[in-house]
Design a protein around this nucleic acid. Structure first.
Lengths: 193, 193
DNA sequence: TGCATTCCGGAATGATCATTCTATAATAAT
DNA sequence: ATTATTATAGAATGATCATTCCGGAATGCA
């Protein structure tokens, strides 16, 4: 009865997210989004509702990927310190590799769209969920005795989120592996008693 | 012989900087800048050369203030830990107070204008100068024996820059004093071992 | 006072933007 | 095969943008 979609919404969303991520929200025009997704203006509006709505969908998608990546990295059968070091090491690899110059999409939105209440709320939620993923892993590690029993895992998780945001922001301006490794090393020392 | 300026360039620059800082580069229109500075379009162009040039002037001004503030805060006759704690505490106060939701102007530019080579270069330079200010203070503290002799003050300075950027970014999305204090406390512990 | 110079306000310019609309093409069910 | 439904493409819309330009106003000096 109805004509079926000729595109995969999730693939289009992934490509739109990439465009927003690399260029920023305002600098990404609808023409850019059409080029990135291969969709026409009309289809974009029909599928997502508009530029801002598309940004929010992109943020949700990014959050999901970020949480999944953290969860997987920290679920490895390794001491939490090693798992975290591995995670951060890969992060630095991605930053230095090139497209990492894009920074963290969530952080970018926080910086660029601080005046937009709805976006800030979404950013806050995403940061909270990422913090939650760290928190779960840290709690498990604490139960295994890898972290001091009197350490506040919530605070530690918050610190990791903040620290990684800083690392990625600095990495955008100066994607120097040695410098970033230095920062990461000191940051991870904070887990020690 | 020539008609004198009717405005103070530095005051106009300070106000333009404030506008860029709060709203971001792209979201600040020339009309906004005229309203903020009290100057007309023509005067703005004559005095600064254009929107981007005005941004770069603003960045230079902000960098100068930032370096001065750090230098003053860490030149106090206090142990480096206390001086740093005081500096970060005041930073958090400003973040929570309200306009601190603006975050760090340098960080904002890094996030929003990562695609603009000239701006990125300027951001990198500003971060390096701020790092230098921390480095000077840390070196002095190390000479006083307040920091382990084998600690790399350069790395520590880099870490502080990155950590503070993270703190301010997170603070933009979630200006919660307790959470920020938690983060800052863990961050400053990194000077200890 | 009058001239030369500079500043300022606002209009004009040309481009780009997000969004809406319309007409065409394509599909599924009858 | 025909009809009903929906996706698509591209033009149209209306607003806003940074930048330039021009005429009038204000000042310093002779």
């Amino acid at each position: 009865m109805a004509r079926p979609r000729e595109f995969e919404p999730d693939i289009a969303l992934a490509r739109a997210m990439q465009a927003f991520w690399v260029k920023g929200y305002q600098a990404t025009s609808l023409a850019d989004l059409c080029a990135a997704t291969g969709l026409s203006r009309s289809s974009l509006y029909a599928a997502f509702g508009g530029k801002r709505a598309l940004l929010h969908c992109s943020l949700a998608r990014y959050e999901q990927e970020a949480v999944a990546r953290i969860t997987v990295a920290l679920a490895k059968p390794l001491p939490i310190r090693e798992a975290l070091a591995g995670f951060v090491g890969e992060l630095i690899d991605r930053i230095v590799a090139g497209p990492g110059r894009a920074g963290c999409f969530i952080g970018n939105c926080a910086a660029e769209l601080a005046g937009d209440r709805a976006t800030v709320a979404r950013v806050r939620q995403s940061l909270a969920r990422i913090e939650g993923a760290f928190c779960v892993a840290l709690t498990r590690a604490q139960a295994r005795g890898e972290i001091a029993a009197d350490a506040g895992v919530e605070s530690l998780a918050r610190f990791l989120v903040s620290g990684i945001q800083g690392l990625r922001l600095v990495g955008k301006a100066n994607p120097d592996r040695a410098a970033l490794k230095d920062i990461a090393a000191i940051m991870l020392r904070c887990l020690d008693p």
